[in-house]
Amino acid sequence: MQVLVVDDHPIMRVGVRQLIEAAWADVQVEEAETIEEAVHCFNARPPNVVLLDLSLPDATGVEGAARMLRVAKGVPILVLSMNPESGYAARLLQMGVAGYLPKDRASQDLITAIRRVLEGGRYVTASMADRLLALLDGKAPGALPHEALSTQEYRVMQLIAAGQGASDIAEAMHLSVKTVGSYRARILAKTGWKNNTELTKYCVQHGLTDSE
């Protein structure tokens, strides 16, 4: 079995490697610190599963996952992140990742999560599974404002919270400045935020900014 671990923290990569090698005798673990390195490793030797950090030097948040999904077609991606599940898991599962595991649960649940996604299933923690089911039923208690956003709106929200202006966001997302403005207007309308300051404050409070 071949596993690709994408994380810019050496200690985390070592810990993940040790857990995997203890669980499988015939496993080969490749490591990458950036999405660019990950793409190179993937193309050179396609893995059976990708373990992906959300905060990397050349990509953060959903952008890194989106870039990896374009390359790793048919190969499950399991996200390992310090960011809270409530902020990212539902969005990433909608995009196509196979699972989401908080890093503070990795030592207990990593092998179970890998086995689940290798079998073609999806993996989230039990508490997040309950929340996702409630969201599907429209019964989620206290549904968060950002959960109503589309994937593109969500990305614009994150970039605004990161302090990027409309021109920078347009360039990063390959959109026109006018389209970015339209997304911003829809974000404010859906969430009830009055301005970028309220948007940024919310993102910081809910761990939706780059925190790793």
Rank of each mutant, 00 (worst) to 15 (best):
G15I: 06
S81Q: 14
A66G: 03
E30W: 10
I20E: 01
E33C: 08
A23K: 10
D58W: 04
G74W: 02
I35N: 04
R17Y: 07
M82G: 12
L69Y: 07
A72V: 10
V71E: 12
L51C: 12
E33I: 07
G15K: 08
V27K: 01
M82S: 15
E30Q: 15
A23F: 08
V50I: 15
P76D: 04
L69P: 09
D26C: 06
V62A: 11
V75A: 00
N43V: 12
V27I: 03
D58L: 04
R67G: 15
P57L: 11
N43T: 07
A32W: 05
V14K: 08
R45S: 14
P76I: 00
P47M: 09
P46V: 06
E21A: 07
I77E: 09
T34A: 06
V50G: 10
L56N: 00
N48Q: 14
Q18E: 13
V27N: 00
H40Y: 03
K73R: 15
I77V: 13
P76Y: 05
I20L: 09
G15H: 12
P57G: 12
E33L: 01
P57I: 04
V27D: 02
A66K: 01
T60K: 11
P46L: 00
F42G: 01
V50Y: 01
I20P: 04
E30F: 11
A32M: 02
L51Q: 13
G61W: 06
D58H: 10
P46W: 03
Q18S: 14
V39L: 03
